[in-house]
Simulated scan of single mutants.
Amino acid sequence: MQFLKILFWCLIAFVAAMFTFGNWNTVPINLWGGLVADVNLPFLLLLTFLAGLIPTWLYHRAARWRLQQRLATAERVILDIRPAHVPMGAQPLPPPANPPGTAPLA
């Protein structure tokens, strides 16, 4: 499986290199105040890709952190509710004759 992952990333790198080699053109970008910036097309595409990726990645990390905090809180509550241990010689409670929500058998 690791080989396929490496092969996939090599294929992506090869396609990116071929795109960069074939499109090494400067693109004029009109800025404020009449300024014009000449930027290479692959660099411009990389910047736009990162402009979309980074906020999405930050949102994902924040949501994941929030869910981990909620899970940790729920686990602490469960550990607080559950008895730590049953003392030696103590008998556990017998199960109820009729589970809640069921009719007694006649």
Rank of each mutant, 00 (worst) to 15 (best):
M1C: 05
Q2R: 10
F3P: 01
F3T: 07
L4T: 12
L4C: 08
K5D: 05
K5N: 00
I6S: 14
I6A: 15
L7A: 01
F8W: 13
F8S: 14
F8P: 01
W9V: 13
W9P: 08
C10G: 15
L11C: 06
I12A: 04
I12H: 01
A13G: 06
A13Y: 02
F14L: 15
V15P: 02
A16P: 02
A17K: 04
M18T: 09
F19A: 01
T20R: 01
F21S: 00
N23L: 11
W24D: 15
N25L: 04
N25Q: 05
N25A: 02
T26R: 07
V27F: 06
V27W: 06
V27T: 01
P28D: 07
P28W: 04
P28I: 14
P28E: 12
P28S: 10
I29N: 01
W32Q: 13
W32V: 13
G33R: 11
G33W: 11
G33S: 12
G33T: 07
G34N: 11
G34V: 00
V36D: 02
D38L: 06
V39K: 04
L41V: 02
P42N: 07
P42A: 12
F43G: 02
L44T: 05
L44I: 08
L46V: 11
L47T: 05
T48D: 09
F49C: 13
L50I: 15
L50D: 08
G52L: 03
L53W: 13
L53G: 06
I54S: 00
P55S: 01
T56H: 03
T56K: 05
L58S: 03
Y59L: 12
Y59R: 07
Y59M: 11
H60T: 06
R61E: 03
R61A: 11
A62K: 03
A62L: 03
R64S: 11
R64N: 06
W65Y: 10
R66M: 08
Q68L: 08
Q68Y: 03
Q69T: 13
R70F: 07
R70E: 09
R70G: 02
A72Q: 09
T73M: 07
T73I: 12
T73G: 06
A74F: 00
A74G: 02
A74I: 01
E75Q: 07
E75G: 00
R76W: 14
R76E: 14
R76L: 12
V77S: 09
I78Q: 10
D80L: 05
D80S: 11
I81Y: 04
R82E: 12
P83Q: 15
P83N: 14
H85K: 06
H85I: 03
H85A: 09
V86R: 13
V86K: 12
V86W: 06
P87T: 04
M88V: 10
M88L: 13
M88K: 12
G89L: 06
A90Y: 10
Q91R: 10
P92R: 15
P92F: 12
P92M: 13
L93Y: 12
P94S: 15
P94L: 15
P95V: 15
P96K: 04
P96W: 04
P96D: 01
P96Y: 03
A97F: 10
N98A: 09
N98F: 07
N98C: 08
N98E: 05
P99K: 12
P99F: 15
P99G: 10
P99T: 09
P100I: 08
T102E: 02
P104K: 09
L105C: 07
L105E: 10
L105H: 08
A106L: 14
A106F: 08
A106S: 08
A106Q: 09
